[in-house]
Design a protein around this nucleic acid. Structure first.
Lengths: 238, 238
DNA sequence: CGACATGGTGTACGCCGTACACCTAGAGAG
DNA sequence: CTCTCTAGGTGTACGGCGTACACCATGTCG
């Protein structure tokens, strides 16, 4: 209690959560060993007493973020909700709920996508998540091959990534002049991007609803998967 | 013709294609300004006479790769193939063909995925590709909103990426011992990864067919999109 | 012939990850 | 109570990175 100006001793969890906090605020690029060290009031090499190298730091960050929410296990949801949903559809809401939970944490930690994408080793939290998701399919009687393909079809969508390599190309409100120029060369792109070009000529800035897009795509996939399951999909014979 | 030992003068195309070649052989990480310079027998700073900075180099590489194949425009395919496919389905095969073409070039340039993902500016070839793809939908009478959602639903799949954040977790042939350990903690994951664990106990190493997985997922999405189009999907009123 | 643009050079700066040798403080054993 | 051991923090150094800036070489054109 006396003169506790002394800095608390470092440990792995403190290092990891400091890294997560830093990435949350300043982005993944700000997370360098040196920067993180000064953030913790410590010399860069001190970190190496707690993580083997930067790769392991990133792995740890991913695990921290991923372990944040999915502790709750929403499996077998609405089995007994007396409405239209039958027990048959339990897997669907379980998968959907879990993925949307992942999406929420991904929105809280925008760096997670890039971090996860560059990881090559699969850390515990990743495996836990995957296993749980796959479990929902299998518990509903999905064959292993269909489960396998379903997971592939969902792809990185399982992490809640909005995989917008198709970005709306012009974040700044579409300055009419340059938009006109763009529209000349890429009429289709402009039409699909800024969905609402009204009769009065005003452009309702695309500002497309990411959450809607995500659920739209997710449901499209889940519908397709459900249909295959219902009709007893079998792998094509070789 | 005399003593032409003199090195050819550099220019932007030469720089870009050298970068592409280097990335093809040694991966994207090998493409540093310094390394690329020595590859071209030139001092690092010389490159800056041809590209503004590294970002622009990457942009250029993407454009080179993307401009490689889709010059062919397979739109309106099998309109007049007297078989089961109706003209109504023209968009489907056009979209499918174009995406599979993109996939082929992505397989030829494995670095393309990461490069495209880190790009923030949309370069000409990217816009051309997007515009063409969107054009296929619109030409088939897709509403702009549905086209928009369809593009989002396809997501980065339009580039032919196999978006395997769900990787089979163990590239090395599944050493039985560690596999057993893994199976204990993650039974579902192991079951779905190594699809074929036969009755005789032998494990047919997953070695899952990427091309099949890709087309499976793509067709799932296209089926869903086709259904929505057929039944005249309308955006939910706000 | 001289000006000028184009393109290649050399040096330098501030970042990065991290190897390696060192020091320090506290805990447990004698 | 000291002695030793160890976990954790330090300092220095190296080789890589992107790139700013001043400079020089070469060809073209007036």
């Amino acid at each position: 209690m006396a003169d506790q100006t002394r800095r608390e001793r470092l440990n792995r969890p403190r290092v990891l959560s400091a890294a997560v906090a830093l990435a949350d605020v300043e982005g993944l690029d700000a997370v360098s060993m040196r920067r993180l060290a000064t953030e913790l009031g410590v010399v860069p090499m001190a970190l190496y007493k707690h993580v083997a190298d930067k790769d392991e730091l990133l792995d740890g960050m991913v695990d921290v973020a991923l372990g944040e929410v999915p502790a709750e296990i929403p499996d077998r949801a609405q089995d007994d909700a007396g409405d239209g949903t039958s027990a048959e559809d339990g897997w669907r809401s379980a998968v959907r709920t879990r993925i949307l939970a992942a999406r929420r944490i991904q929105l809280r930690h925008p760096w997670l996508r890039r971090a996860l994408e560059t990881r090559t080793t699969r850390t515990p939290a990743v495996l836990v998540y995957l296993d749980a998701l796959i479990g929902s399919f299998r518990a509903a009687g999905f064959s292993d091959p269909l489960t396998h393909h379903a997971m592939h079809a969902l792809g990185s969508r399982i992490w809640g990534f909005t995989q917008d390599l198709f970005e709306d190309a012009n974040q700044p409100p579409p300055d009419p002049a340059s938009l006109a120029a763009l529209a000349q060369h890429f009429p289709n792109l402009v039409a699909a991007a800024s969905v609402a070009v009204h009769d009065d000529g005003t452009v309702v800035a695309s500002g497309c609803d990411d959450q809607f897009e995500f659920e739209f795509a997710l449901d499209l996939l889940l519908d397709g998967i459900a249909a295959l399951h219902r009709q007893g999909w079998l792998p094509p014979r070789r």
